[in-house]
């Protein structure tokens, strides 16, 4: 089966089948969008929540890095291949607090999840499943044929979302 690997601050869209995969979500959030009728899947691996908080945008701005720009981009790219925003459902994973005994990184994961929920809400995309928070990393596999999302971890087994 075709596997499309989504790196950090990256996105991909598949239609009809295949697997969208992203490895090692820590405080990052993986956003999987699915159009069940057309069997179109989109996956983004976002690093930070809001692009607005970075006023000095780099010349080569990468919208896939931030929740507030990555999700609209993903919707747009899915519509380009026949998806429809009103049919989309989301599954999200990540936003954890990996480092024990310290606050650094914590608020980043929480903020990423909050902003992801907020952006999805503004776009009218319901969240069909999620596996967020905690203190462990996640690898996400999104089976585009079925819409199934499988989360695997180190030492905590697998779980379907």
């Amino acid at each position: 089966m075709h596997i499309s690997r989504v790196k950090i601050a990256d996105w991909a869209v598949l239609k009809g089948g295949g697997i969208l995969m992203t490895i090692g979500l820590g405080s990052c959030v993986g956003v999987a969008l699915y159009d069940v009728q057309q069997k179109i899947g989109g996956l983004a691996h976002i690093l930070l929540s809001k692009s607005r908080e970075f006023p000095q945008r780099a010349a080569a701005f990468n919208p896939a890095k931030f929740a507030d720009t990555a999700i609209p981009l993903l919707v747009q790219e899915m519509e380009r291949v026949g998806g429809k925003k009103s049919r989309l459902r989301a599954k999200i994973a990540g936003g954890s607090q990996l480092f024990m005994n310290q606050k650094i990184g914590n608020s980043v994961g929480e903020k990423n999840v909050l902003t992801t929920r907020q952006v999805l809400g503004e776009l009218g995309i319901p969240i069909a499943g999620e596996d967020v928070g905690g203190n462990y990393g996640r690898t996400l596999r999104f089976f585009v044929e079925s819409g199934l999302v499988v989360i695997s971890t180190v030492g905590r087994g697998e779980k379907e979302v």
Binding site: S96, L98, M100, I104, G137
Partner: peptide, 17 residues
């Protein structure tokens, strides 16, 4: 601070921080 997990999760969390 310490974490034990997959390396990509740890390093991306540091990049986000």
């Amino acid at each position: 601070a310490i974490a034990m997990d997959m390396s990509a999760a740890i390093i991306s969390t540091v990049m986000a921080a």
